[in-house]
Amino acid sequence: MLHSHSLLWHYLWLAPDILQVALAVLLYRRGFYKAYPVFFAYLIYEAIETFTLYAVDVLPWTTAESYWRIFWVTLIIGGLVKFAVIGELLRHLTYSRSALAKAGDLTFACAGVGLTLLAVLVAAYTTPHNPHWLVAGALLLLQATYVVQCGLILFVFLLAAYFRLSWDRATFGIALGFSIVFCQHLASRAVEVSFALPENGIVFDLLNMATYHVCVLIWCYYLLVPRKKPAISAQPLPENNLAVWNRELERLLQK
């Protein structure tokens, strides 16, 4: 075991992913994976990643170096999967709105490129305190990844707000959960990479895990609890004159 941990630590490390596995099983039974295959794959992958890292951490014959090497691999794969999930959320928002699909994809790609450049710039100006490249590099990469992910998820919300798109419940729940995790983890990792924290930053680790726990609970709520059916009410129409409008349109077309 690399470090001895408290009961709270063990709970916060494992509980969210056990909950996540249960969520994945329930969603599979409901056929949810057909509509959100990437997010479903993320649920499975994240659980495997967490259990693997947990096993490496508690097993007595593993070293810190092997832990961090495995962490690097999971960091890269996990980052790519999360980017794919954000892309899936955007597609769910724009797929049925053909007028926005192309423009949405283009601006999303531009935002991604811009944010990547920003993340690289931020990383270049960050001075990590940890002398070990495995640890410092991993934290820097995490910080950079979260910069891009925060920016992209904010972009999705801004796009929906500007064009007054209505979210479906599942898409909104997934996006909200990820927003909270990305923003909190970005703040946490930025502090961890730059400052030497007391007790190896255990408070921040607990905070990160607790935030992820909240995120999984949010997903459970939005994905499992059915939406209340809204009362169907007819929209009142403006008091206007259709005949005059048609006449004016014909006049404009004849110009």
Partner: peptide, 11 residues
């Protein structure tokens, strides 16, 4: 410090 700035931006 850049880290503090990032924390503010994230918030």
């Amino acid at each position: 410090n850049l880290a503090i700035f990032i924390v503010i931006i994230a918030a």
